[in-house]
Simulated assay, not measured.
Amino acid sequence: MFGGGGGLDPRKMEQMMDQMGIDMDELDAEEVIIRTADRELVFESPDVTKMDARGQETYQVIGSPNERERGAGGDEAGGASAGGFDEEDVELVATRTGAGEDAAREALEATDGDLAAAVARLE
Rank of each mutant, 00 (worst) to 15 (best):
15 Q>H: 09
88 E>G: 07
89 D>S: 05
108 L>V: 09
36 T>H: 02
108 L>N: 10
107 A>L: 10
16 M>V: 15
56 Q>S: 13
49 T>L: 14
39 R>N: 03
90 V>M: 04
64 S>R: 11
1 M>R: 01
118 A>M: 06
38 D>M: 01
115 L>Y: 05
39 R>T: 02
11 R>Q: 14
11 R>N: 14
32 V>A: 11
107 A>R: 09
113 G>I: 08
102 D>F: 03
88 E>I: 00
5 G>D: 14
121 R>Y: 03
62 I>V: 15
18 D>N: 15
59 Y>S: 03
60 Q>V: 09
103 A>C: 09
12 K>H: 03
108 L>C: 12
78 G>R: 07
43 F>D: 04
102 D>A: 15
82 A>N: 08
45 S>G: 12
117 A>D: 14
26 E>S: 07
32 V>Q: 08
91 E>W: 02
95 T>R: 13
107 A>Q: 10
14 E>K: 15
20 M>I: 00
95 T>M: 05
2 F>P: 01
97 T>L: 09
9 D>T: 04
15 Q>S: 11
72 A>K: 12
24 M>L: 07
15 Q>G: 11
39 R>G: 01
34 I>Y: 01
34 I>S: 08
117 A>R: 11
24 M>A: 07
29 A>H: 03
11 R>L: 08
121 R>T: 09
71 G>P: 08
41 L>E: 04
79 G>L: 09
13 M>E: 08
71 G>Q: 08
6 G>K: 14
66 N>G: 14
57 E>Y: 06
10 P>L: 10
78 G>H: 04
46 P>A: 08
71 G>D: 07
43 F>V: 06
66 N>L: 13
109 E>Y: 00
65 P>R: 02
108 L>D: 13
53 A>Y: 01
31 E>K: 12
122 L>D: 13
111 T>I: 06
116 A>M: 10
60 Q>E: 06
77 A>F: 05
19 Q>W: 02
71 G>A: 08
70 R>V: 15
5 G>R: 15
29 A>F: 03
95 T>A: 13
14 E>P: 02
25 D>K: 12
101 E>Y: 01
100 G>W: 12
41 L>H: 04
11 R>W: 04
